[in-house]
Write a protein that binds this DNA or RNA. Sequence first.
DNA 1: TATTTCTCTTAATCTACATTAAGTTTTCAT
DNA 2: ATGAAAACTTAATGTAGATTAAGAGAAATA
Lengths: 193, 193
Amino acid sequence: MDHNLLLAGIAKYVNLDAEEQEYLISVLHYKKIKRKQLILEEGDINNKVTFVTSGCLRSYAVDKNGTEHVLQFAPAGWWITDMRSFTTGQPARLNIDAIEDSEYIYIPKANFEELNIRIPKFEHYNRVIGQNALATYQHRQIDNVTLSAMERYANFCQLYPSLIKTLPQKQVASYIGVTPEFLSKMLNTMIVK
Amino acid sequence: MDHNLLLAGIAKYVNLDAEEQEYLISVLHYKKIKRKQLILEEGDINNKVTFVTSGCLRSYAVDKNGTEHVLQFAPAGWWITDMRSFTTGQPARLNIDAIEDSEYIYIPKANFEELNIRIPKFEHYNRVIGQNALATYQHRQIDNVTLSAMERYANFCQLYPSLIKTLPQKQVASYIGVTPEFLSKMLNTMIVK
DNA sequence: TATTTCTCTTAATCTACATTAAGTTTTCAT
DNA sequence: ATGAAAACTTAATGTAGATTAAGAGAAATA
């Protein structure tokens, strides 16, 4: 089973020795899922962390009108979690599903905690990528109240050039916080200008 | 100088021994600031982490019209940082200032990194509070696209009951993402209903 | 390959919230 | 205490983006 992408991702931050790697690998679980299949449903407890090895997952919330709002896309090499549910044990507000046929690794919460305690380098890795994620969310929040829909779209294109090519437009619309109708109109009237 | 609030905050998560505490305390810096004084200005490098011991700080970004948008309030016991500037060394997008006369502790980045390496328990603490902050930002993002201004206001009241009493209304408006005029109208027409 | 199911487009209408402006009240610094 | 500066209110008008609807193109599954 393929955990090389995960090990490579960790190796960018810390050097695990052979024993540590072996222990890490021993707690990994491997899964394949089909397009549209859910791995977390609103109301469930998100008691694992998920690392995508191929394909693309996404997390999203559903509002009272039934409209989906994408929080995150996770292509290969990314983690995806409902962090509040994971840390507090509360029911998830997010759904996580596959945008295309995908493969992922997950680590159950108990193992994740033990890894952090027994391998300080692993905790270091998690502290640092956590800080990076926090930085991203802080600035996304600011972008959302500070920029127009067009500017947020331009931002997205710059930040995720590979995703723009593969994602259906309506998913992008949902991520940047507009309706698919408005994004379509925005992009097509822009060409004229 | 008063670092008891900081030690108490850390003690909720990990037990530092006397030597570790001493080392931590040795890298702390103490400051007092007046209302409206800036401790971080957009464009600066945010090369320290800041822990509030009294009063209240806030981080905010300014848009191209000059309007301020509050990202975070930090009353006593809270950390406040432009996390992207801190982790990457890029110029800050955020400003941080004092809403009222305040006192805070800061740790320079180099010391912060060394603390994390030399005291694994300190890194554990940071990993866990980082996860909590991440959880908060994930759900704030969802709230912002999912809820009306009124619902976001109700949310804020529930989440920060102490802040609601002390903060000027316009600061709350800026945090929930509406103009002060609209918040005023919303609250006053609501009473009638 | 057919057919069902998504996805994208266009256009008319609608609405939550912004903007502008001006007056009033509260707070702050001297 | 007193004047200046913030903070709050009210109201008229403006707008980015939502909603609704319906047709056309693309793609998934049988």
